[in-house]
Computed example of a mutant assay.
Amino acid sequence: MKTISKSKLKSQLLEFLRLVESEGEEIIVTDRGNPVVKISKYANSPPTDELFAKMRGKITYFEDLTTPITEEWGET
């Protein structure tokens, strides 16, 4: 991970963007020594179906989740 000042990034932005794109290098941009921005390669997130595929079929509902539970808490 590289660290670079805003002023240096401004003068060499295209070069640093190519570095991130080609090598996947992350760059931390600083302002007066304080980190302010992280530049990294964009990654597509997998679809929700794929994210929860391992859980499919492992969760069981025993009743309707939208049914009020006034019996347990009492009527107000």
Rank of each mutant, 00 (worst) to 15 (best):
E15T: 15
S45H: 09
M55I: 10
L9E: 01
D64L: 08
K2V: 04
E63F: 09
L19A: 09
K54I: 03
R18T: 06
V20C: 10
I39N: 01
V29D: 01
G74R: 11
K38M: 11
S22Q: 14
L9F: 14
T30N: 02
T76P: 11
F62P: 00
E21I: 06
W73C: 00
T67L: 15
V36A: 11
N34A: 12
P68M: 03
T70S: 08
E26I: 04
I27A: 03
R32M: 04
L17G: 01
K6Q: 09
T67N: 09
T30C: 06
T76W: 08
G24D: 08
E23D: 14
T76D: 07
L14K: 06
M55Y: 06
E63P: 00
L14M: 04
G33L: 08
K58V: 03
G57N: 07
Q12S: 12
E63V: 10
T76H: 05
S22E: 14
D31K: 14
R18C: 02
R32L: 03
I27K: 07
L17N: 06
K58R: 14
D49E: 15
R56A: 15
E26W: 04
D64R: 12
N34L: 07
K38N: 05
G24I: 07
F62K: 09
E21D: 13
E23L: 08
G57A: 08
T30Q: 11
D31H: 10
K8D: 05
K54W: 02
I27E: 02
T3C: 02
V29G: 03
P46N: 01
A43E: 15
F62D: 01
L9H: 01
E72Y: 13
R32D: 13
G74Q: 09
L51I: 15
K41I: 10
S7M: 06
E72I: 15
D64M: 07
G74L: 11
F16N: 04
E26F: 03
Y42N: 07
K6C: 06
S7Y: 03
V37Y: 12
F62A: 07
Q12P: 00
S40K: 15
